[in-house]
Design a protein around this nucleic acid. Structure first.
Lengths: 161, 161
DNA sequence: TAAGATTGACTTATCAATCTTA
DNA sequence: TAAGATTGATAAGTCAATCTTA
């Protein structure tokens, strides 16, 4: 294979890694979201928020932190939290030291709901992902994510506006 | 580590593999979509459709096949193709042998647009993904996807012919 | 009756603008 | 003036129902 070619197309091995990543993600997430919705009427995006809050000190997180944690825009998170508040799974609380800030706080009902749903979700993750890989492969994936995300976040600023 | 624990929570190594998978995907896709939109006003979802068509025989695919290829619902694909038709990048064509069926066909303009955009996109995939991993790691990922999704499925290609 | 594709109603996420406090 | 969060307008995807042909 000519080096020249490499400038344009991805090599086959690269494509297998990248394309498989995209497809696998799309299919797994679709399946897991489906299972969660059917069994608990809880979308994966909501589940994700509940998990983040459950793992945070005081069961609470600032809106901006939470948005980063679940990889959602600020406004997207505001809307998602609105819905969770309506359902009684989360409540909002002012930040003492900064009157501009808001916490999203997991309620007892939210924690209970999370506990119900987590069995379904974790079973799904096991069945579709974890159990199909051996220890070595799991470690290899973790290392890959570390290299991709850990090694210097590369902000982009070289595009024409 | 107690076996009992395994029934509920994921082990740390499992969580690193799974959680990293989700976060990495979300961040990369967001970044790549952004680059494509800024540089070419082309969402990643549209790009993906154009790629699938470019790699298909006769530059065309049945609606249902295309929906599967890009992991979108049937109706979602109908809408996406509507938009691409409006932009002149794709056109629809009846299936000869079955009057119910429709092809989505890549137009010359669509192919040209794809070629423009592919440089940006492939550079991005290299910079954010491929170049951060070595050959071994890429192969490990490909193997993992293979084990997770099993044998048969449409390969994702990345390059217009 | 079923298969292939589309449409209607609705949900969810985003950007840009706005409001409030630092 | 900027930072944190929310809101208005809008884009994009989903399910369920529908239309057309097999």
């Amino acid at each position: 294979m000519e080096v020249v070619n490499q400038r344009v197309a991805l090599a086959e091995a690269e494509l297998a890694a990248w394309g498989g990543f995209l497809r696998t993600h799309a299919e797994l997430v679709r399946q897991l979201d489906d299972e969660l919705q059917r069994a608990h009427k809880l979308p994966l995006s909501s589940y994700d928020v509940l998990v983040q809050l459950a793992n945070a000190p005081g069961r609470r997180l600032r809106m901006a932190e939470l948005a980063d944690a679940v990889v959602l825009s600020r406004s997207g998170l505001t809307r998602l939290v609105d819905r969770l508040v309506e359902q009684g799974l989360v409540c909002r609380s002012r930040v003492d030291c900064d009157a501009r800030g808001m916490y999203a706080v997991l309620t007892d009902a939210g924690l209970a709901r999370l506990r119900e749903a987590s069995q379904t979700h974790i079973d799904g993750v096991r069945r579709l992902f974890v159990d199909r890989l051996d220890e070595e492969e799991l470690a290899a994936l973790a290392r890959a994510w570390e290299r991709i995300r850990g090694g210097g976040a590369t902000p982009v600023c070289d595009e024409p506006r």
